[in-house]
């Protein structure tokens, strides 16, 4: 971790229009929770509301954050200014991950817990569990998308296809997708904290190990890609 890189990356995440959209996502979620709470009497809407936050808002926040810290700089080549320094490229990747991770946790995972509290204040354990699930899934998403951003210019589209198409559409048809679904791993952890959260169906051990392996592996991969970063002329 490098403080300067962290600060620069954080500035890239929250800077300008991206920051607006990043804020709108959790606001929409919590706003929805408040509206649902006002419309209904008991905790009916938790599943629908939080499910939306967990399967859509969280990965989108992670995608925006992870691609913000790496995408534009790699795209236009100006990352050379950061790379031409006596700093390990893995440190650079880790610092960028830290900035993106903090964003995902604050604007992706935390709102899940808040929405759950708004809708179902009787079960703070549920909010805690959802927060935990969000943190786990958010961590893996962020790392995964960071690795993607270091790999391809189309990281955003690939990331969207992964979350929306693979986890969303295919995952709802073929249950085997859960083994390769970040969302299922996070839910498994949430389930271990409180049974009100549905289990992902992979078993806690597998979920934790898979989440760890993918997170650590992706951040390492991003660093390794940066080690081979190639400067090109203007095309």
């Amino acid at each position: 971790m490098n403080r300067t890189l962290f600060a620069l990356s954080a500035q890239a995440v929250v800077g300008r229009r991206r920051g607006v959209v990043l804020l709108l996502l959790p606001l929409a979620l919590v706003g929805l929770a408040v509206v649902v709470r006002l419309l209904t009497s008991d905790a009916v809407g938790v599943e629908a509301t939080v499910g939306l936050g967990y399967t859509l808002a969280l990965p989108l926040v992670a995608l925006l954050a992870a691609t913000a810290v790496l995408g534009p700089e790699v795209d236009d080549g100006s990352i050379v200014y950061l790379l031409a320094k006596p700093v390990s490229r893995h440190t650079i990747a880790r610092s960028k991950f830290a900035a993106a991770w903090l964003t995902t946790t604050a604007l992706g995972a935390l709102p899940l817990a808040v929405a759950s509290l708004v809708l179902d204040s009787a079960h703070p354990g549920r909010a805690l569990a959802l927060g935990a699930a969000g943190v786990v899934a958010g961590t893996v998403y962020t790392a995964l998308f960071l690795g993607l951003a270091a790999l391809t210019r189309h990281a955003v589209v690939v990331g969207l296809l992964y979350t929306l198409f693979w986890e969303g559409v295919i995952g709802s048809v073929l249950s085997g997708v859960k083994w390769l679904s970040v969302g299922a791993w996070g839910r498994e952890v949430g389930h271990a904290v409180d049974d009100l959260v549905d289990a992902g169906g992979t078993g806690l051990g597998y979920a934790v190990v898979a989440a760890l392996v993918v997170s650590v592996g992706s951040v390492w991969f991003a660093g390794d890609r940066l080690r081979s970063f190639t400067l090109r002329g203007d095309e």
């Binding site: 500035q11 100006s78 050379v80 200014y81 950061l82 031409a84 320094k85 006596p86 400067l231 203007d234």
Partner: peptide, 26 residues
Amino acid sequence: LVPEREVSFGYLTGRRFVLANAELHG
């Protein structure tokens, strides 16, 4: 190294950008 590519850190001030470079050099 002074690459041909433009600095895309348009949201930083010149001083902040150079300072960041100095800090990264330790």
